[in-house]
Nucleic acid binder design. Sequence first.
RNA 1: CGGGGAGUGGCGCAGCCUGGUAGCGCACCUGCUUUGGGAGCAGGGAGUCGCAGGUUCAAAUCCUGUCUCCCCGACCA
Length: 583
Amino acid sequence: MRLSQQLFVTLREEPADAEVRSHALMARAGFILKLGAGLYVYGPMMWRVLRKIEQIVREEHDRIGCQELLMPAVQPRELWDESGRWERYVNDGILFNFRDRKGSEVCLGPTHEEVITHFVRKQVQSWKQLPTTLYQIQTKFRDEIRPRFGLMRGREFIMKDAYSFDANEEGMKDSYAMMRQVYRNIFSRCGLRFTPVEADSGAIGGSGSEEFMVDAETGEDAIAVCHEIGYAANIEKAVSQISAPAGEPEKVEMHKEPTPGAKTCEDLLKLFPDLGVERLLKTVLYEAVWEDREQTIAVMCRGDRELNEVKLLNHLDALNLELADEKLVRSVTGAEPGFAGPIGLRDDVRLLADTSVEGVQGFLCGGNETDTHWLDVWFGRDLEQPETADFGVVQSGDTTVCGKGKIEITRGIEVGHIFQLGTKYSEAMDASFLDENQKKLPLWMGCYGIGVSRVAASAIEQNHDEGGMIWPLPIAPYQVLIVQMKAGAEEQDALCAELEKELEARGVDVLVDDRKKVNPGAKFKDADLIGIPLRIVVGRDAGERRVEWSPRSGGDKEVVTAEEALARVSAAVEAASSVRDSE
RNA sequence: CGGGGAGUGGCGCAGCCUGGUAGCGCACCUGCUUUGGGAGCAGGGAGUCGCAGGUUCAAAUCCUGUCUCCCCGACCA
């Protein structure tokens, strides 16, 4: 392919709205163009990258016998009413929904559990048809609350979603395990450094789930890891052990303390420096919403710990959880915000506590009275210890549950998520089969998603430098870039044409920068920016069939013969194609 | 949804406070020279200043509304 014949535009300056490197570089290089918040045109170069990723995804799925299909993006509401998810998705505001000309409600699919379940309930009747796994690669639509970071969180993005169907739980787990390995293979082949982590399954539901996190500081997700014992979990899901505060406090009678203006733990510590932050219990108020009701929830938590709203939401089995606003705080506590406590809350408030409060005695807590806290409060003596459960956020330095490791917090980009759904959808939508004994049983499902466009962005987040992107070879838009110093010079023209032809004959994707009237400096800058991993510079030594070998990822530039350059390309392509993950 | 910020040639920005009819760099077009790390000179094209109202002799500039985009937060009491 000749660059001179392509529409190829690069910018010298970055677009002002790009926050992360992948976004800035892809925009500068003309790989993407913003159409609106979270909406992007994938330019020709970008599309090549996406197709390469898709190809890897297809190969790895097909290898274990998955079948590709394609479902509609437009989905009728009725299907979503069957699974019970329409209300939730509409309430969350994430659904692009509208009415068609007949007035029927439809949405643009944010995910396809309903449609695939419908497809399978129509197609599958017998245990003999199981197990089966189907997948598609398609545009998904989600009206994200806050789209950001270019392709990282778009409102329209390319996703691979797969769904497995088994006759029983063991079968589902087998399918899940196979898919887990497929995912490892895919991300390894894409040249990503990643960590699989235990995850919360959120709106999709089901029993177990894992996310595949690309290691990156700019990632939106925090993950808790312990390398010694091999633990890794999304912070939403992560668990740890923490020790109770040391020392037995004096058994003083509970009493009120004036704490004017002291609304935060920090303020209170200044007033009671000897108390220790562990003996300061905060009480956080939430409004929980279920399908048929709502309730104010007060949750106690140790001063040095944070509350995990995902764990709380799951415990309550609520649809939504919101921090109480000031008005609600006043109504429930009778005090200004900042002085909420467990004693004397309005009767209808449900009081819970994080496990971090266990073993804490003689503590300080809010007085439910402006500028007042209770001090020397004891559970069992002054108030019953509320129902406790793990509502805490794991912190760096915590001990792992097994007691043998220390937890470290890192960040990652979620590029894949796999779920054991169980029979949640098959039961709700009556997707069943007949077993050997003519018994009607629900299908056991798994579902598996990969953000294809996000994989591309993550690859750049992980692989770039000052000059631009550095694509991993297997997903690079082209594998080789031949930079011709002076287009039109006879010897260079001839050698470039020869190299291009030979590489194409070997099945290598090659791009020749044969643009005229573009200076060498500009060509080098563009080459660095678009990040084609292998590069051959054809310049003044073309007559002697000598070229410069200068891989994008650095390393020493070297003058070699044309034949040697070809051999090096073949070797690099060969090496990259043999990458497989082995766990 | 709350808070903050921004919309001026394709891109990045200045001008706005203190109203007087739009400018810089890059990119683009033409010509000549140049050709191993974003070339030089000369000439040229391109913006109803997001949109709608209002104030004024006069609005990119002041006022009101509206749309869009970006950032922070959906935060600890």
